[in-house]
């Protein structure tokens, strides 16, 4: 009896090592054997996204910030506001500078000095979507038309890269803008604009923006990335799945379920039926993400009331 138990234990351990070896040596075959049973290596269904959490006010020195975890992928977004002179073409608008960073701590593929190839791609995508979705009204960032407006620096740091980086980056950027609080500003004697400290009573100069402290967030974009492999659609792929599957498509929808962007960088040829399936999954995902974000915003407001 004891010998049988020991044999079973040894067999179990050997079995685990064999599975791990098979996974490393034949990753594609390993994945396909799972997909045949409609399951993924991390036990998710193909259409299932990983659990997502949002934490607002993660950075105390920033005007708006959010920490987002999408499975093991972690993103930290931070917004800092600076007063600047608006451009001549748009004298009554502020502007936004988006930068996506992949520090070497987040992935074995990133080395210090040389930025990751994917970082500027995500930076550009983030900026395009924030601008084109209509989430932000840049006129709200204007202080004095033609003279002073806000420049919002949005920095998104990837703290752990485990797939679907753009999705996590977009959620964190949206959450950071939701949390953004605009500081009070006054105009000095010399006509210069400067920020006022927390103590409103001390301000001897006229406040420019007493009322407008929060941005009006209208159309909120959310995204879903799907990996496409033969007839399978895998929502929210992990880094392992992304490295095996060469085709992916990212759908971005706004609050009205309208399409803001579809991105499919190369890969195998795909039918419209598959794209429609991805859009349908993205709609479900958008609703869940909106719930998660609203819960956090309400929790934050309750905290501030106390």
């Amino acid at each position: 009896m004891a010998a049988e138990a020991q044999a079973t234990a040894a067999g179990g351990l050997a079995g685990e090592m064999e599975v791990e070896a098979y996974r490393r040596l034949f990753p594609l075959a390993f994945l396909e054997r799972h997909l045949r049973e409609s399951v993924r290596p991390d036990a998710r269904r193909p259409a299932e996204a990983r659990p997502t959490t949002v934490a607002l006010a993660a950075v105390s020195s920033a005007h708006g910030s959010a920490l987002v975890r999408l499975g093991d992928t972690a993103m930290l977004a931070s917004i800092k506001l600076e007063v600047m002179s608006p451009s001549g073409e748009a004298p009554d608008e502020g502007s936004i500078a988006v930068e996506f960073h992949m520090p070497p701590i987040c992935s074995p593929l990133v080395r210090p000095g040389r930025p990751a190839e994917v970082a500027p791609v995500i930076s550009k995508n983030l900026e395009d979507i924030l601008m084109s979705s209509g989430m932000l009204n840049l006129k709200e960032l204007c202080l004095i038309s033609g003279k002073a407006s806000w420049l919002a620096y949005l920095d998104v740091y990837c703290l752990n890269a485990d797939g679907s980086l753009f999705d996590a980056a977009l959620i964190s950027a949206v959450a950071a803008f939701t949390h953004l609080e605009i500081p009070l500003v006054s105009v000095g004697d010399d006509g210069r604009v400067f920020t006022v400290g927390g103590n409103e009573g001390k301000a001897k100069y006229e406040l420019v923006n007493r009322e407008k402290r929060k941005l009006t967030i209208t159309n909120v974009p959310f995204s879903l990335t799907c990996a496409l492999h033969k007839d399978n659609v895998l929502a929210d792929p992990t880094a392992e799945e992304e490295s095996i599957i060469e085709t992916s498509v990212t759908i971005v929808l706004d609050s009205s379920d309208q399409i803001v962007s579809i991105q499919k960088p190369g890969g195998a040829v795909t039918s419209m039926t598959t794209i429609k399936e991805c859009i349908s999954l993205a709609k479900d995902r958008r609703r869940k993400l909106r719930e998660i974000l609203m819960d956090n915003v309400e929790a934050m407001e309750v905290d501030q009331t106390d």
Binding site: S85, A97, V98
Partner: peptide, 12 residues
């Protein structure tokens, strides 16, 4: 960085 080239920031 995509800030407008003509934009300058200043502190008081």
């Amino acid at each position: 960085m995509s800030a407008a080239a003509t934009a300058g920031t200043y502190s008081p």
